[in-house]
Design a protein around this nucleic acid. Structure first.
Lengths: 335, 335
DNA sequence: CTGGGTTAGTAACTCGGGTTACAAAGAAGT
DNA sequence: ACTTCTTTGTAACCCGAGTTACTAACCCAG
């Protein structure tokens, strides 16, 4: 067990002081050493199989080059996970690029996180994913621990996308196709910024068109499909809701997109693999992750980060939207 | 910045020695202290906002309570990610339960991992996910760093499932439905244990039934669908291949399951959300993750882990399999 | 041969906690 | 009053690096 080779062992083996060994192995600029010494130290390190402890180094330098990603893992349906996992994947790519490690700090409602557990020195900073303004988020921000939010997160120091603009564009797309009865499926977590913003985007577009907006919960939307007065198109809070709606629609004999148009949000795998593939609003996760990391690194260097405009979204045209039946002008948006 | 409150500050504030402060805050068994002292220390800690450094503690105790999960993140298609992310999610749950942290150690083919980068002390041990017997896996095992493989991983110290039995059962299910021309879609990474085992399961079942096995690559399988002599059913290496096959089949006018039966592997979201939902072999990821963690913890305590039988898989009946057309006896396996 | 500059190298301290071994004070026993 | 045990507490050293400040030897110029 206790066989870790330390820098002291290396120094002893090479017959130099520990300081010298450290300086040589770190190629410390401005440190002059005889070529022979350098070689002896390197060979000693090689021979002994010396491996530097990132831990001790972190203690000493104050940076462990690791960021913590806080997200909840207790949602029941696997589909709920899809988006979180996509965010995580994006964070992983961003960290990899920035040569940082990523530590997952999962939490579930049964075991609330405490600031003390999280803000020990095992991570340099934190990324909060899709957190509502809950007790933990508030506490961690209050503690001053370097923290950035991402996704539909806590409002402070939040890297955000243009949620509102995305949904507005989606709604306008349906309007352009000729729909007039367009419903919106609400996010299930009122109070979260993304939930409110997306709804607002829908409201804006409808009001601008002079049409009456109509919001539904996920459940209500599925239930209304059999009624005569149902909307001919839906914009939904996310791909999961959109997908569920297509499944429900098929079950009551409605064809997508002929009888019902549906637009999702996030462009998860779900949207891509669904039948038919879903028109959806792309959520630029990689860009968000990179930006979040950049903000965090500013924080770690003591400079407050610049405020940045929300990242742009993009409507991805696939096959779940079409003109309402009985409406001829345009048949299908060009792919 | 340098405002971290240390145990020394607490001790000073409370007017006791550092040792006493440590003992009190850690509730060290067998340490007797006057009640007044205990209170003073606790209050000092509270007042100063003392937060113990997990880092320093780790350096001292040799355990950082964090495991590293090594997986590749450079596959192109998002569907490829689905399985890896499921494994990751399972590991996250297992770690959460075991009160361990999980650090993601991503790697891509462009930046090869080195043992030195990974086996610093920032993780206690490593879980290798779906690694082929590549240079890194070999090196890390050779280095003696506590490492366990999971998924279709490197063969040493591998927590495995009954890959072979799973595919055998799937094949037998198709045989029972009356299929005689059953193809198999190979995993694309020959040499990986899972790829060979799953293939072997198919071969065994076919040979036992006295039928000629026929293996295809993913591409070949999709290409052969238009030929007269095509199989009436496929067992595939994973859900992604199965899903792709159903898409390709639909494109050439084949109905699933009426004209073609397909069985996947892993029971990812893909299988659940596909149309029709795919019959597939469940891969017990949570059980694997927990077992891997258990093995790792044995390793960390110095005892070699017990060898365990591969975990059982289970065939999940959904709607992508049926009797071949023109075969009456049983119409559909009971749900 | 004397002062200044370079080259080569080091002792001693820091980071923040954990642990071991021992000391001083008070209580109890004889 | 003298030992012995308990309670209460502490100094000093450990983990494995990084850093600061300083020395000794040598070279060159004046």
């Amino acid at each position: 067990m206790g066989k870790a080779v330390t820098i002291n062992d290396v120094a002893r083996e090479a017959g130099v002081s520990k300081t010298t060994a450290v300086f040589v192995l770190n190629n410390r600029p401005g440190f002059s050493a005889a070529e022979g010494t350098r070689i002896r130290v390197r060979e000693a390190a090689q021979k002994l199989g010396y491996r530097r402890s990132g831990l001790a180094r972190a203690l000493s330098t104050g940076r462990i080059y690791t960021v913590g990603v806080v997200l909840r893992i207790d949602s029941g349906r696997p589909q709920d996970w899809v988006y979180s996992k996509d965010v995580l994947a994006a964070m992983a790519r961003a960290c990899h690029k920035a040569r940082l490690r990523l530590t997952l700090i999962p939490f579930s409602s049964d075991a609330m996180l405490s600031v003390d557990d999280v803000a020990d020195q095992r991570v340099d900073g934190l990324i909060l994913v899709s957190h509502s303004a809950d007790a933990f988020a508030r506490q961690i921000y209050a503690s001053g621990f370097p923290t950035v939010s991402i996704g539909s997160g806590y409002a402070e120091r939040l890297v955000d996308i243009d949620q509102r603009g995305g949904v507005r564009e989606a709604t306008e797309h349906l309007l352009a196709l000729g729909h007039t009865k367009i419903g919106y499926v609400l996010g299930s977590n009122p109070g979260i910024r993304a939930v409110e913003e997306r709804r607002a985007g829908y409201m804006e577009a409808m009001q601008a068109a002079g049409l009456a907006p109509q919001c539904y919960t996920n459940h209500e939307a599925q239930a209304c499909l059999t009624q005569a007065e149902r909307p001919t198109a839906f914009v939904t809070y996310n791909d999961d809701f959109a997908w569920q709606l297509t499944v429900a629609a098929r079950q009551v004999g409605l064809r997508i997109p002929d009888d019902l148009s549906v637009i999702g949000f996030d462009n998860t795998v779900l949207a891509e693999t669904a039948v038919p593939p879903l028109t959806t609003i792309e959520n630029p996760l990689d860009a968000q992750a990179e930006r979040a990391l950049k903000v965090l690194q500013c924080l770690l260097q003591g400079k407050e980060s610049p405020t940045m405009a929300p990242l742009a979204t993009r409507l991805i045209h696939r096959q779940s939207t079409a003109a309402p039946s009985g409406f001829s002008p345009q048949k299908e948006p060009k792919q």
